[in-house]
Amino acid sequence: MESLIISQMAVSGALMGLVYALIAYGFQLTFSTSKSINFGQGELVMLSAFFSLTLLDWGVPYWLMVPGGLLFGVFLGLAVERAGVRLALEQKSEGWILLTIIIGLLGFSAAENIWGRDDRPFPTPISADALQFFGVNVTPLEISVAIGVFALMGLIELFKRKTLLGKAFEAVSADRDAAELMGISATRTVMLSYGLSGLVAAMAGILVSPITTVGPTMASALILKAFSVAVVAGLDSGFGVVVIGIFLGALESLTSFYLGSGWREAPGLILLILALAVRPNGVFGKATIRKV
Protein backbone atom coordinates (compact mmCIF):
# COMPACT_ATOMS: atom_id res chain seq x y z
CA MET A 1 0.00 0.00 0.00
CA GLU A 2 2.78 2.36 0.97
CA SER A 3 4.55 1.96 -2.34
CA LEU A 4 1.29 2.63 -4.17
CA ILE A 5 0.88 5.93 -2.35
CA ILE A 6 4.46 6.85 -3.16
CA SER A 7 3.97 6.15 -6.84
CA GLN A 8 0.69 8.04 -6.80
CA MET A 9 2.42 11.07 -5.30
CA ALA A 10 5.35 10.83 -7.63
CA VAL A 11 3.23 10.57 -10.76
CA SER A 12 0.93 13.50 -10.02
CA GLY A 13 3.93 15.54 -8.89
CA ALA A 14 5.83 14.69 -12.04
CA LEU A 15 2.93 15.77 -14.24
CA MET A 16 2.87 19.10 -12.43
CA GLY A 17 6.63 19.25 -12.91
CA LEU A 18 6.10 19.25 -16.65
CA VAL A 19 4.45 22.66 -16.29
CA TYR A 20 7.58 23.94 -14.53
CA ALA A 21 9.59 22.49 -17.38
CA LEU A 22 7.47 24.29 -19.96
CA ILE A 23 7.85 27.66 -18.25
CA ALA A 24 11.57 27.04 -17.76
CA TYR A 25 11.79 26.30 -21.48
CA GLY A 26 10.40 29.79 -22.07
CA PHE A 27 13.35 31.20 -20.10
CA GLN A 28 15.74 29.21 -22.24
CA LEU A 29 14.29 30.50 -25.49
CA THR A 30 15.06 34.12 -24.75
CA PHE A 31 18.28 33.41 -22.90
CA SER A 32 19.73 31.57 -25.86
CA THR A 33 19.28 34.45 -28.30
CA SER A 34 19.85 37.44 -26.06
CA LYS A 35 21.27 36.30 -22.69
CA SER A 36 18.23 37.94 -21.11
CA ILE A 37 15.11 36.51 -19.52
CA ASN A 38 11.72 37.93 -18.66
CA PHE A 39 11.42 38.09 -14.89
CA GLY A 40 7.73 38.81 -15.38
CA GLN A 41 7.16 35.51 -17.14
CA GLY A 42 4.79 34.38 -14.37
CA GLU A 43 2.54 37.35 -15.06
CA LEU A 44 2.46 36.33 -18.73
CA VAL A 45 1.20 32.90 -17.65
CA MET A 46 -1.43 34.49 -15.42
CA LEU A 47 -2.57 37.19 -17.88
CA SER A 48 -2.90 34.67 -20.70
CA ALA A 49 -4.94 32.41 -18.41
CA PHE A 50 -7.26 35.29 -17.49
CA PHE A 51 -7.60 36.29 -21.12
CA SER A 52 -8.45 32.73 -22.10
CA LEU A 53 -11.01 32.53 -19.30
CA THR A 54 -12.58 35.75 -20.56
CA LEU A 55 -12.81 34.26 -24.05
CA LEU A 56 -14.67 31.31 -22.53
CA ASP A 57 -16.95 33.72 -20.63
CA TRP A 58 -17.79 35.37 -23.93
CA GLY A 59 -18.95 32.03 -25.22
CA VAL A 60 -15.95 31.16 -27.38
CA PRO A 61 -15.74 27.36 -27.62
CA TYR A 62 -12.83 25.74 -25.78
CA TRP A 63 -10.91 24.61 -28.85
CA LEU A 64 -11.15 28.06 -30.42
CA MET A 65 -10.12 29.68 -27.14
CA VAL A 66 -6.81 27.79 -27.15
CA PRO A 67 -5.30 29.46 -30.25
CA GLY A 68 -6.75 32.80 -29.11
CA GLY A 69 -5.07 32.50 -25.72
CA LEU A 70 -1.79 31.41 -27.30
CA LEU A 71 -1.85 34.36 -29.69
CA PHE A 72 -2.42 36.69 -26.76
CA GLY A 73 0.68 35.17 -25.11
CA VAL A 74 2.74 35.85 -28.24
CA PHE A 75 1.50 39.43 -28.22
CA LEU A 76 2.49 39.84 -24.54
CA GLY A 77 5.93 38.37 -25.18
CA LEU A 78 6.53 40.77 -28.06
CA ALA A 79 5.34 43.68 -25.93
CA VAL A 80 7.78 42.79 -23.14
CA GLU A 81 10.64 42.63 -25.65
CA ARG A 82 9.77 45.97 -27.20
CA ALA A 83 9.11 47.81 -23.94
CA GLY A 84 11.56 46.24 -21.55
CA VAL A 85 14.36 44.44 -23.29
CA ARG A 86 15.35 45.91 -26.64
CA LEU A 87 16.60 49.29 -25.45
CA ALA A 88 18.53 47.76 -22.57
CA LEU A 89 20.23 45.26 -24.88
CA GLU A 90 21.09 47.97 -27.40
CA GLN A 91 22.84 49.88 -24.62
CA LYS A 92 24.54 46.67 -23.50
CA SER A 93 23.04 47.27 -20.05
CA GLU A 94 21.42 44.91 -17.57
CA GLY A 95 18.41 47.21 -17.35
CA TRP A 96 16.16 44.47 -18.70
CA ILE A 97 16.24 42.83 -15.25
CA LEU A 98 14.44 45.73 -13.57
CA LEU A 99 12.32 46.58 -16.58
CA THR A 100 10.89 43.08 -16.96
CA ILE A 101 10.16 42.94 -13.22
CA ILE A 102 8.35 46.28 -13.47
CA ILE A 103 6.33 45.17 -16.49
CA GLY A 104 5.38 42.06 -14.52
CA LEU A 105 4.18 44.19 -11.60
CA LEU A 106 2.15 46.33 -13.98
CA GLY A 107 0.58 43.19 -15.41
CA PHE A 108 -0.23 42.02 -11.90
CA SER A 109 -2.00 45.27 -10.97
CA ALA A 110 -3.80 45.29 -14.28
CA ALA A 111 -5.10 41.78 -13.64
CA GLU A 112 -6.32 42.70 -10.14
CA ASN A 113 -8.14 45.71 -11.53
CA ILE A 114 -9.67 44.00 -14.51
CA TRP A 115 -10.50 40.57 -13.14
CA GLY A 116 -10.45 41.04 -9.35
CA ARG A 117 -8.46 39.25 -6.67
CA ASP A 118 -10.51 36.11 -6.37
CA ASP A 119 -9.44 32.78 -7.71
CA ARG A 120 -11.82 31.50 -10.35
CA PRO A 121 -12.33 28.01 -11.73
CA PHE A 122 -11.31 27.40 -15.33
CA PRO A 123 -13.83 25.20 -17.15
CA THR A 124 -12.52 22.53 -19.48
CA PRO A 125 -14.17 19.80 -21.55
CA ILE A 126 -11.41 17.40 -20.50
CA SER A 127 -12.53 15.07 -17.76
CA ALA A 128 -11.06 15.11 -14.27
CA ASP A 129 -12.32 11.61 -13.45
CA ALA A 130 -9.43 9.40 -12.53
CA LEU A 131 -8.33 6.50 -14.65
CA GLN A 132 -6.28 3.73 -13.12
CA PHE A 133 -2.94 2.59 -14.47
CA PHE A 134 -1.32 -0.16 -12.38
CA GLY A 135 -3.24 1.13 -9.38
CA VAL A 136 -2.11 4.72 -9.86
CA ASN A 137 -4.83 7.29 -10.48
CA VAL A 138 -4.27 9.64 -13.40
CA THR A 139 -6.88 12.04 -14.73
CA PRO A 140 -7.29 12.83 -18.44
CA LEU A 141 -6.72 16.43 -17.38
CA GLU A 142 -3.24 15.56 -16.12
CA ILE A 143 -2.54 13.59 -19.26
CA SER A 144 -3.57 16.61 -21.34
CA VAL A 145 -0.91 18.64 -19.51
CA ALA A 146 1.75 16.14 -20.50
CA ILE A 147 0.57 16.00 -24.10
CA GLY A 148 0.40 19.79 -24.35
CA VAL A 149 3.88 20.30 -22.91
CA PHE A 150 5.55 17.69 -25.10
CA ALA A 151 3.66 18.75 -28.23
CA LEU A 152 4.60 22.40 -27.93
CA MET A 153 8.22 21.81 -26.98
CA GLY A 154 8.51 19.25 -29.76
CA LEU A 155 7.06 21.65 -32.32
CA ILE A 156 9.39 24.46 -31.30
CA GLU A 157 12.43 22.17 -31.39
CA LEU A 158 11.36 20.94 -34.82
CA PHE A 159 10.98 24.53 -35.98
CA LYS A 160 14.51 25.34 -34.78
CA ARG A 161 16.06 22.37 -36.55
CA LYS A 162 14.09 22.13 -39.78
CA THR A 163 13.15 25.62 -40.96
CA LEU A 164 15.46 28.33 -42.26
CA LEU A 165 14.08 30.83 -39.75
CA GLY A 166 14.64 28.29 -36.99
CA LYS A 167 18.21 27.71 -38.11
CA ALA A 168 18.76 31.46 -38.10
CA PHE A 169 17.47 31.39 -34.52
CA GLU A 170 20.08 28.74 -33.69
CA ALA A 171 22.77 30.69 -35.49
CA VAL A 172 22.12 33.80 -33.40
CA SER A 173 22.14 31.65 -30.27
CA ALA A 174 25.48 30.12 -31.22
CA ASP A 175 27.30 33.24 -32.37
CA ARG A 176 25.59 36.58 -32.73
CA ASP A 177 28.31 38.24 -34.80
CA ALA A 178 28.68 35.30 -37.16
CA ALA A 179 24.91 35.26 -37.65
CA GLU A 180 24.80 38.98 -38.41
CA LEU A 181 27.61 38.52 -40.92
CA MET A 182 25.39 36.01 -42.72
CA GLY A 183 22.70 38.66 -43.02
CA ILE A 184 20.55 37.51 -40.11
CA SER A 185 19.04 40.27 -38.00
CA ALA A 186 19.81 39.50 -34.37
CA THR A 187 17.24 42.04 -33.20
CA ARG A 188 14.45 40.33 -35.08
CA THR A 189 15.59 36.96 -33.83
CA VAL A 190 15.43 38.20 -30.24
CA MET A 191 11.90 39.45 -30.96
CA LEU A 192 11.01 36.03 -32.27
CA SER A 193 12.39 34.37 -29.16
CA TYR A 194 10.29 36.61 -26.91
CA GLY A 195 7.22 35.88 -28.99
CA LEU A 196 7.85 32.15 -28.64
CA SER A 197 8.46 32.46 -24.92
CA GLY A 198 5.13 34.30 -24.59
CA LEU A 199 3.49 31.48 -26.53
CA VAL A 200 5.00 28.95 -24.15
CA ALA A 201 3.82 30.95 -21.12
CA ALA A 202 0.26 31.11 -22.47
CA MET A 203 0.28 27.37 -23.11
CA ALA A 204 1.41 26.78 -19.53
CA GLY A 205 -1.42 29.01 -18.29
CA ILE A 206 -4.09 27.23 -20.34
CA LEU A 207 -2.83 23.79 -19.30
CA VAL A 208 -2.45 24.43 -15.61
CA SER A 209 -5.50 26.65 -14.96
CA PRO A 210 -8.12 23.87 -14.80
CA ILE A 211 -6.03 22.23 -12.08
CA THR A 212 -4.97 25.26 -10.03
CA THR A 213 -7.76 27.80 -10.75
CA VAL A 214 -7.08 31.27 -12.14
CA GLY A 215 -6.11 34.23 -9.96
CA PRO A 216 -3.59 37.07 -9.94
CA THR A 217 -1.20 35.08 -7.75
CA MET A 218 -1.62 31.76 -9.57
CA ALA A 219 1.85 31.88 -11.12
CA SER A 220 3.97 33.28 -8.32
CA ALA A 221 4.83 29.86 -6.92
CA LEU A 222 5.00 28.30 -10.38
CA ILE A 223 7.49 30.80 -11.64
CA LEU A 224 9.88 30.35 -8.72
CA LYS A 225 10.00 26.64 -9.38
CA ALA A 226 10.32 27.09 -13.11
CA PHE A 227 13.26 29.34 -12.41
CA SER A 228 14.82 26.69 -10.17
CA VAL A 229 14.30 24.12 -12.90
CA ALA A 230 15.90 26.35 -15.52
CA VAL A 231 18.95 27.05 -13.38
CA VAL A 232 19.37 23.50 -12.12
CA ALA A 233 19.01 22.04 -15.62
CA GLY A 234 21.15 24.68 -17.26
CA LEU A 235 19.89 27.44 -19.52
CA ASP A 236 20.65 25.65 -22.77
CA SER A 237 19.15 22.18 -22.57
CA GLY A 238 15.51 21.59 -23.49
CA PHE A 239 15.89 17.94 -22.59
CA GLY A 240 17.38 18.97 -19.25
CA VAL A 241 14.40 21.06 -18.15
CA VAL A 242 12.04 18.17 -18.80
CA VAL A 243 14.12 15.77 -16.70
CA ILE A 244 14.65 18.24 -13.88
CA GLY A 245 11.03 19.43 -14.06
CA ILE A 246 9.71 15.90 -13.62
CA PHE A 247 12.22 15.23 -10.86
CA LEU A 248 11.40 18.41 -8.93
CA GLY A 249 7.65 17.92 -9.33
CA ALA A 250 7.81 14.40 -7.94
CA LEU A 251 10.18 15.40 -5.15
CA GLU A 252 7.90 18.26 -4.07
CA SER A 253 4.88 16.11 -3.97
CA LEU A 254 6.63 13.47 -1.86
CA THR A 255 8.08 16.11 0.46
CA SER A 256 4.69 17.62 1.16
CA PHE A 257 3.27 14.15 1.76
CA TYR A 258 5.90 13.14 4.28
CA LEU A 259 6.82 16.43 5.94
CA GLY A 260 3.58 18.38 5.56
CA SER A 261 2.50 20.81 2.88
CA GLY A 262 4.44 23.65 4.49
CA TRP A 263 7.61 22.04 3.16
CA ARG A 264 6.34 21.98 -0.39
CA GLU A 265 8.49 24.85 -1.59
CA ALA A 266 11.65 23.59 0.07
CA PRO A 267 13.03 21.14 -2.52
CA GLY A 268 12.99 23.70 -5.31
CA LEU A 269 14.94 26.23 -3.32
CA ILE A 270 17.39 23.66 -1.95
CA LEU A 271 18.05 22.34 -5.44
CA LEU A 272 18.54 25.88 -6.69
CA ILE A 273 21.10 26.70 -4.02
CA LEU A 274 22.88 23.38 -4.49
CA ALA A 275 23.07 23.87 -8.22
CA LEU A 276 24.42 27.39 -7.92
CA ALA A 277 27.05 26.19 -5.47
CA VAL A 278 28.13 23.01 -7.22
CA ARG A 279 27.24 23.35 -10.91
CA PRO A 280 26.52 26.94 -11.85
CA ASN A 281 26.11 25.97 -15.51
CA GLY A 282 23.42 23.48 -14.60
CA VAL A 283 23.33 19.70 -14.57
CA PHE A 284 22.79 19.55 -18.35
CA GLY A 285 24.50 22.83 -19.14
CA LYS A 286 27.68 23.23 -21.12
CA ALA A 287 30.45 25.21 -19.54
CA THR A 288 31.08 28.10 -21.89
CA ILE A 289 34.67 28.41 -22.89
CA ARG A 290 35.52 31.60 -24.66
CA LYS A 291 38.50 31.41 -26.94
CA VAL A 292 40.37 34.67 -27.11
Binding site: L164, K167, A168, E170, A171, A174, D175, A178, A179, M182, G183, I184
Partner: peptide, 16 residues
Amino acid sequence: VLAGMSVRENLELGAY
Protein backbone atom coordinates in the same frame (compact mmCIF):
# COMPACT_ATOMS: atom_id res chain seq x y z
CA VAL B 1 31.65 28.61 -38.69
CA LEU B 2 28.63 27.41 -36.73
CA ALA B 3 30.30 24.41 -35.17
CA GLY B 4 27.13 22.59 -34.10
CA MET B 5 25.47 22.82 -37.50
CA SER B 6 26.16 20.77 -40.57
CA VAL B 7 28.29 22.01 -43.46
CA ARG B 8 25.16 22.18 -45.57
CA GLU B 9 23.30 24.28 -43.03
CA ASN B 10 26.21 26.69 -42.76
CA LEU B 11 26.10 27.21 -46.52
CA GLU B 12 22.32 27.62 -46.54
CA LEU B 13 22.50 30.23 -43.83
CA GLY B 14 25.16 32.07 -45.82
CA ALA B 15 22.46 32.68 -48.40
CA TYR B 16 19.93 33.75 -45.76
